[in-house]
Amino acid sequence: MTTLTPRFTAAVDYARTAHAGHFRKGTSIPYLYHLLGVASLVLEHGGSEDQAIAGLLHDVLEDCGHEHEATIRGKFGDDVANIVLTCTDGHAEQKKAATTPAAKRLNWLERKQRYLAHLAGSDPAALLVSGCDKLHNARAIVGDLEGAAGQSVFERFTAGRDGTLRYYAAVAEVFRQREVPVAQALDATVERMHALAAEPTRRTLEGWKPD
């Protein structure tokens, strides 16, 4: 049984402050919603407090800057910081370096390819957090596909419809191969995503080039 301590509360507040002014893609929903959702999924699938805290903080380096690493390590410990690093496919500074649409798509593809290769050998503790992140994101896309946004949801993503579908097919495959606790739920969600997008074939990023 996982017990949550004041460290968890402190992590919620850290995430809230770090992501102040951030919203989910194409919505007015505060980004903290996603972070709380990931932490909840971690706990649902038997994760520890450190893993739940990492779920709250998993996007801080990517969205807010690499300088947060030292603070996270100091406040929450090496285990949390190392999981956050594993869940980070690029820092905010690296993303800002790509300024044109073509450069952004290429930057996205290179980051995702590195991240997929990284996941294949990552620690199981970090894989649970990453898997919960991908599951929460995939469920949000499915919800949008079923709702008012419909197919236009893919316009929010750098890689568009094809790249987004291929990426989720690829991550589902990695988590299935690594037997991560959320793999079955993620696989079913990705299958639903493809069905709603009228894409019967699940292709990965292998060999894919952005337009």
Rank of each mutant, 00 (worst) to 15 (best):
K96H: 11
E110Y: 11
D211E: 11
Y14L: 06
L56P: 06
A18I: 06
R16W: 15
A188M: 11
L186C: 07
H118V: 06
R202K: 12
H136S: 03
H19M: 07
P181Y: 07
R161A: 08
V38R: 00
S40W: 10
G65A: 04
L36K: 00
A149M: 09
A140P: 01
A183E: 08
L61V: 07
L61N: 04
R203S: 15
N82S: 13
H136D: 11
G121W: 00
I72G: 02
A97Q: 13
D123C: 10
T99Q: 12
R114C: 11
D50G: 01
V153P: 01
T204S: 10
G65Q: 12
T158K: 05
L196S: 02
H194A: 02
D13Y: 04
A125F: 10
K75W: 15
D59E: 12
E44C: 14
Q177G: 09
D162P: 03
A52I: 06
E155G: 13
K75F: 15
A98R: 05
R178I: 04
R139E: 12
R161Q: 09
H68Q: 08
T100G: 07
A92P: 12
R24Y: 04
V182A: 03
F23P: 06
V153C: 03
A126I: 01
S48L: 07
F154A: 06
R16Q: 14
E199L: 00
L196K: 02
K104S: 09
T2H: 07
T9D: 15
R24M: 10
T9H: 11
R176Y: 11
A20F: 09
D123N: 15
V153S: 06
L205N: 00
L106T: 14
C64T: 08
A185S: 11
F76N: 00
W108I: 07
G26T: 02
T158H: 01
M1R: 14
L4F: 14
H66D: 15
A172Y: 03
K134D: 09
P181M: 05
L205K: 03
T5C: 10
W208N: 05
Q151D: 13
G160T: 10
L85A: 12
A11T: 08
T164C: 08
A98F: 02
H45I: 05
D123R: 15
S152L: 09
A102S: 15
T204N: 04
H118F: 13
H34A: 01
K95T: 07
E191R: 12
A169E: 05
S152H: 13
T9F: 12
K104W: 05
T3A: 13
G55V: 02
H34C: 01
P6L: 06
V174T: 05
T158I: 14
V182H: 03
L57A: 00
Q113L: 15
Y33P: 06
L165V: 06
A81L: 08
E67A: 15
L56W: 06
A126G: 15
G74F: 09
R203L: 13
F175E: 01
H118P: 06
D63S: 12
L57I: 02
L61H: 02
E67W: 15
G207T: 06
H68S: 08
E44I: 11
L196N: 01
K95E: 05
Q113F: 07
